[in-house]
Amino acid sequence: MGVKYWHQVFNPYSDVSSALISSVFIAVLTVIVCLLVSVPAGYALSKRSMPFRAFWMLLFLIPQAFPNLTVYINIARIFYDFGLNGTLLGVVLVHSVHGLMFSVWISVAAFSSTDPMLERASRNLGAGPIYTFFHIVLPQAMPGIIASCIFVFLESLDEFTGTFFVGAPDITTLPLLLYTASMEGNYQIASITALILLVPSIGFMIIINKFMKPEMLSKLGK
């Protein structure tokens, strides 16, 4: 009784430890993939002059517009052709599809809320567009981008359906472990896993609260 199950969970050779490690690893990789897309996309889409702007914005929303299950089953079917099922890369990609909605939309809002005059001032003083982007624009958008990373990280950590269809049984993340544990009647293990999943969510929510500026939210979808 008591802490017995906690010992079992935190045993270095337990399923929970390895699931925790792969969960975090997948989440970090998902954040990186999302950043690689959302930073350039967010900057480009924050420009009013971008052609087909509304179309690109909608494109990132579309995966959320259909029932999860149908989307993920079809992704799993497509990934099967490429041999991505049961691989880490496959799971990271499926998480990214979901994460990109957050990261792109929040990045667009973050870049839109930066003052274009700051960019002009930099060009005016002899800095090229790329130098300006990294030294002036990106630092201004950083709080929003950090917030988007946290969202993507948390979403990836909690993701179940996509991981189940693409990753199982080779990849086991915490939500999958939670599922199997409760299916097998190991409610204590399931409860502890659920508690572990709660920790980063609460921690990051406090950080997001610090980073998200109200004026950034007002730029969402603009």
Partner: peptide, 30 residues
């Protein structure tokens, strides 16, 4: 020429100072 090649500098109406930099970083940027 592109804006960065003209060597005409501007004092903006809103000043457009970079809030993430100190006074000397702002002045020394160019």
């Amino acid at each position: 020429l592109a804006a960065e090649k003209r060597n005409i500098t501007m004092v903006f109406q809103s000043y457009a100072l970079w809030p993430h930099m100190t006074v000397s970083q702002n002045i020394g940027y160019g």
